[in-house]
Amino acid sequence: MSFDWSIVWSSLPRLLEGAWMTIWLACVTMLLAIPGGLVLALLRLSRIRALAMAATGFVEFFRATPLILQIYWVYYVLPAYFDVQLSQIATAVTGLVCNISAFNSETFRSGIVSIRQGQWNAAYALGMTPANVFLRIVAPQALMRVLPALASTWVSLFKDTSLVSIIAVAELSYVSLQIRAETYRILEVLTAMAALYWLMGYPQAKLVDWIHHRFKVAE
């Protein structure tokens, strides 16, 4: 059996484009899923029962079903039954954002409830508005506590972007599998794909370790 690594070099531009799409998907998803998760967390904590229950339903659905199913669902069910037609990339982002928002909301919620009532009271006792109490006193402390969990979610998200290849979004996995199908160089292409994922993922994993270490809850 002979290896033909020239395939990898000649396909490198396409692979890098795929890698770029992977990064783009992960970043856009997280940028939207942070406010999304925060809104869901606040809704779940709200005193308006209907809102809290709706948010809970949403979160528990997206946390408890596979991402791949959610992506299919957005791709096939929305257009067929709800007359919503999204591009592939928009579909991918929608699915990922719903899923990651659900996870982030639980992260944020646990962070918010971990701040004891006394901190709220101390801030209210100064005469601060509820918004200021939340933004200046509770949220910064909660964020410090959940940074490690948020970072872990980011690392999973980065790898889970590969799932949107099922709807032909040209991210790294999809591009690699395409090249494989065109060239039949399975080993070379999959090795290149693994190397690219690793090159991108390893520094992130190290960063997450550092964040875990740095922001370990200390009070």
């Binding site: 901190q119 101390a122 100064l126």
Partner: peptide
């Protein structure tokens, strides 16, 4: 003014900012 048994200083702010946060925001 209110003073609590467990102090309830804001741990993410310096001593100075703990004291100025009321006057500046409120």
């Amino acid at each position: 003014g209110m003073v609590f048994q467990n102090f309830e200083l804001f741990p993410h702010l310096t001593v100075l900012r703990n004291i100025t946060i009321g006057p500046t925001t409120v």
